[in-house]
Design a binder for these strands. Structure first.
Length: 130
DNA sequence: ACAATGACGCCTC
DNA sequence: AGAGGCGCCATTG
């Protein structure tokens, strides 16, 4: 009985971290995106943004994890523009109606969870903005 | 065991 | 706004 419940507490050992990260990514709603850092935060692993990428990289496509909904804090896809991975991710996001403007996704609009940088702007948004 | 790498992020210029 | 520098930290060589 490998009582690894103690590991889970800290989620230091990567096995536990991996589980937590995958679970967080699965929560991202269709048509929305999240960032590596945000997912790490949600998984209870602050400061481990890079680990999120590492875990996703090691996760086989058969796991059916919506990895394409994870982008970087700049609102950009973290794969080289001219790579197949980049094109695939962008294609999948656009298929979910996530819009790209100048190769970038507006996190205020598609970001998940809702990041009301300014509750005021979220409430009054368009109205104030003009 | 040590050094390099990277699906990152934040702070400065 | 964009680019560079540095911190973070698990994985790789």
């Amino acid at each position: 009985m490998r009582s690894r419940s103690s590991d889970d507490a800290q989620a230091n050992g990567t096995a536990a971290a991996q589980r937590l990260i995958i679970a967080a990514v699965k929560r991202i709603p269709r048509g929305r995106v999240s960032t590596y850092g945000e997912i790490a935060q949600l998984a209870g692993l602050p400061r481990r943004a890079r680990l999120v990428g590492t875990v996703l990289r090691q996760t086989p496509s058969s796991a059916r994890v919506p990895w394409h909904r994870v982008i970087n804090a700049a609102g950009r896809i973290s794969f080289p523009e001219n790579s197949d991975a980049h094109r695939l991710q962008r294609k999948r996001l656009e298929a979910e109606r996530v819009q790209f403007v100048a190769g970038r996704v507006d996190l205020r609009r598609y970001g998940w969870p809702d990041r009301a940088a300014s509750l005021d702007e979220w409430l009054w948004g368009a109205a104030l903005k003009r």
